[in-house]
Design a binder for these strands. Structure first.
Lengths: 111, 111
DNA sequence: GCAATAGTGAAGTACTTACTTAAGTATTGA
DNA sequence: TCAATACTTAAGTAAGTACTTCACTATTGC
């Protein structure tokens, strides 16, 4: 699992844009070409390619060109890395709250 | 659970910066004042406050001012929303792969 | 009261982002 | 072979980001 801060920067930055998230959403339902990704989006194909490059640089998407068609796929490991970072922080917080709860309960028992 | 795209923009954007992630990391170990958050960071207090405002606008952090000290806390619900978005996409992808696997297995059985 | 502490707000600057248009290349199907 | 398809690349622009410094206000402790 990647914990490289720079990689996390790229992943979260990539997910911070609604057009890119909609591309990831589309790809979560299966591979797609660049044109297919562009179809529902109200922007030029060029803009879509630029977004795609951001997604690819972040590691969230992998692409492969066959003939004139570039086919895109999600890279679930990268999604997992982002998910993992958030999960760790949330768990740390919740464990802390639990310990605090235990402490308060014990203190009450001793009173 | 919030699925508002604009809110997700703000949360992922907030998490895309290493200084802000380090602030969230610090806060996952318990509440802290602005100065405490600033202490390990190589930047002015003003810059830290600006990062904090980004975190607060994203909903990831809640702050409360008592006297001259502003105390900051993680908002775990917001972390959960970000985590959830990623998780849904990853699961969709993995379910798809499973179905594909089933299909291939069935096809082989029928041959 | 007054100095130290804790944070706020505004303005400026260098850099980055999210597009656009326009022109170009490679592939394919009739 | 030639027109349509599927991208690719470059350059330009408007807006946004991540800082800085400096001047300021509110609170607290002696």
């Amino acid at each position: 699992m990647l914990h490289d801060p720079a990689q996390l920067d790229l992943m979260f930055q990539a997910l911070a844009d609604p057009a890119r998230r909609s591309m990831v959403e589309r790809l979560s339902r299966g591979p797609a070409s660049v044109s297919q990704l562009a179809e529902p989006l109200a922007m030029s194909l060029s803009a879509v390619v630029q977004h795609l490059n951001v997604l690819e640089a972040s590691g969230l998407v992998r692409t492969e060109k066959l003939g004139r068609v570039r086919t895109c796929q999600i890279e679930p490991q990268a999604l997992r890395a982002a998910e993992h970072w958030i999960n760790e922080r949330r768990l740390a917080w919740e464990r802390r709250l639990d310990r605090l709860g235990d402490f308060l309960t014990e203190t009450k028992d001793e009173s």
